[in-house]
Write a protein that binds this DNA or RNA. Sequence first.
DNA 1: GAGACTTTTTTCGAGCCTCGAAAAAAGTGT
DNA 2: ACACTTTTTTCGAGGCTCGAAAAAAGTCTC
Lengths: 417, 417
Amino acid sequence: MTVGMRHDDLRRRNRAMVIAATRRGGQASRTEIAAITGLSHSTISAISSDLIAERILTQTRQDAPALKRGRPQVGLALNPQAACVVTLMLSLNSLSAVSLDYAGNVLDEEHRRLDTRALPRDKLIDECLTMLGRRLRHPARQARPVLRVVLATQGITDAEARSMLWSPITPHTDIAFADLLEAEFSIPVTVENDCNMMAEALRWRDPERYRDDFIAILLSHGIGMGLVLKGSMFTGTHSSGVEFGHMVHRPDGALCRCGRRGCIEAYAGSYAIWRNAAGHDGNEEPRGDIDEAEMQALAEAARSHDGPERRAFRIAGEALGFGLGSLFALIDPAPVAMVGLNAAAFDLIEPALREAIARTAGGHHSGSITFDTEPDQIALLREGCAMRALTFVDHRIFAGGRPSQDDPAALHSSLIA
Amino acid sequence: MTVGMRHDDLRRRNRAMVIAATRRGGQASRTEIAAITGLSHSTISAISSDLIAERILTQTRQDAPALKRGRPQVGLALNPQAACVVTLMLSLNSLSAVSLDYAGNVLDEEHRRLDTRALPRDKLIDECLTMLGRRLRHPARQARPVLRVVLATQGITDAEARSMLWSPITPHTDIAFADLLEAEFSIPVTVENDCNMMAEALRWRDPERYRDDFIAILLSHGIGMGLVLKGSMFTGTHSSGVEFGHMVHRPDGALCRCGRRGCIEAYAGSYAIWRNAAGHDGNEEPRGDIDEAEMQALAEAARSHDGPERRAFRIAGEALGFGLGSLFALIDPAPVAMVGLNAAAFDLIEPALREAIARTAGGHHSGSITFDTEPDQIALLREGCAMRALTFVDHRIFAGGRPSQDDPAALHSSLIA
DNA sequence: GAGACTTTTTTCGAGCCTCGAAAAAAGTGT
DNA sequence: ACACTTTTTTCGAGGCTCGAAAAAAGTCTC
């Protein structure tokens, strides 16, 4: 709050709001936007006609034939030709890329399996560079200027979203992907944590439930979290933060993949569940290669009879419950979405989780805490990255007004060159 | 970001910034303010002459005789007559009130000892009402309009800062102090958590160290925390939140004052240190009445020889260290201030704390985490409340422009009546 | 001590931006 | 075909900030 506000900042903000309302609202009319934003009709009219002249928005006759009397509303929509964004998703042993038009439609995509853990540093970087390059040269893009690239990865990124600091997918650390990709293609890039992108996707999927405060927990080989508080993504002061999986569950307890002891993940990650189900103790070195079928088999066994498998899921639930209890002591309870492979086994986890949470300070209202499950983490990640990239274009580029109104090709070359 | 921005919002913000710069800067000149805010000289000139005409700011000849050439800068200062604020501080067995002028000078104050735990609900409320009433009628206030009351209390308040939800100082819960006081005096009131106010005070005391991200930990009978992240006070979604003392240190561990088990406070609060030093186990019911001398004696004993006292402080350090480690996993490390009685014994706590933190994920850079101690929590609380009240007047009242420019008495009666 | 010099502050016209009211537009209903 | 309803645009007014120029209030120099 130390920097003054000028006249054009005001316009910029109001333009951003019209664009945002259009992206959210499907086919919002000027009147609806005026009501949402609280601005006058004249202002909305002026802004939207600017945006249409700049080819950012388009007018579409309302789909549903007006059954009401009066002049029919004219729906505003995003102009799919206005821009293109590309998302890159780097996970253990896989790299994917998707390019989308400004309205969010997929233009083309590519997936590759890579042995990320074995790949040398430059080879890993090179794979990202070439896959992005192929998206840029792909004919489906047509003349759309590429205005944003988002690279999402498992692990920790820096607070400025420019580097991957550490990731379980590779032994290499501090890879400045944003600098590297920008140097090659001159398109603004951010590097994001995958769980944050999943949380981003949830807000768009179900804005009723996931509005201002909610939690996305990734239950997978590791444990991740995306946290939205007071309407904005919560990140650490120096890194992407929210390493929920590495909060301490039991001081000096079971061995975690991160090399430390007693982390929540060391009780609730796939490898921990497997370790407990197999009857090994917490000193056993974590396995790195547990596949989907294996976890499903464990869940089946746990459902069929009371044995070490059921106990393993119970231990996972307890660790997650105490962790959530501690988190709730800090932020108060909020809706939770369980995402990823082991969300499919949440029925085995939930009872112990709720029991543990009720024994903590955050468990005041343990009955009112609601959980939702979403096993398909890939789809969520894709959507989240896309929305992150598109809203960047909305707020940081198009809200500021376009340099040239009539020649998108010129604009494009000036940005991509 | 859903509400539009109008023309007067812009002025309001820029006025707020001029006022804020004046409050921070001591005797900022117009030129300095222009540099800080990035606004033009003309704008600053217009705004400040408005503020002076409205008797919010005053011009003061620069104290130091200008040694430079050129027209000397004219210092702007807050007009002490512009307003009055009152702070009420409710603690275990004590209630204090202070009234201050708009520049932050103390006008008068009062302290009373009360047996808060034994007081019936209405009696407790009544004490607050009458003490506030006496401040309002006190002659030192003169004609200053009372524009804000802040009531700070130990315990949990609601996110809207209107009610005390729960507090260790009284068995009564959900006391809507803001509504009650406003109904009686028609002055806007907020109810704040005491640790948050201490954090607020630290930003004003040492803005270099405590700027955008830092942590204040209250080491006292209980354990509290005030957290500033990305430049703003962090609170829960429904309550004042940040109940660091009730994060889980050891599942099903020692008995806490809150009735649950294993909380950090049950290892690091005064009663926990005493309990461990006395050789009782964690099932022993917490004592409620450990005075300062008793804790000092424990610290002395711990310093003089290796015995149960030293071990008790070590256990406290360990609990705090693991707790901070978990917190740092979420938010990354930040400067820490240890506040309150037991901060004087931080030398006994620190080694075990650092050792524990180094064993957690948050302990990556455990060497770079710095601790500062401030045993005088009362002074900090007073300052924090005062600044919270004054900045409310700055931002929410004076930034919007005054109804009457010439008659502060009329303004006053309209607000206090 | 008068005039040159320097720096701060104010003044003034221009350029934007939003607003409210009125007008225009584009339908439905009779 | 005309009245009615609702949406959208137009237009003048009022505010706000900006840059440039002028005024103000000192120090410095000779």
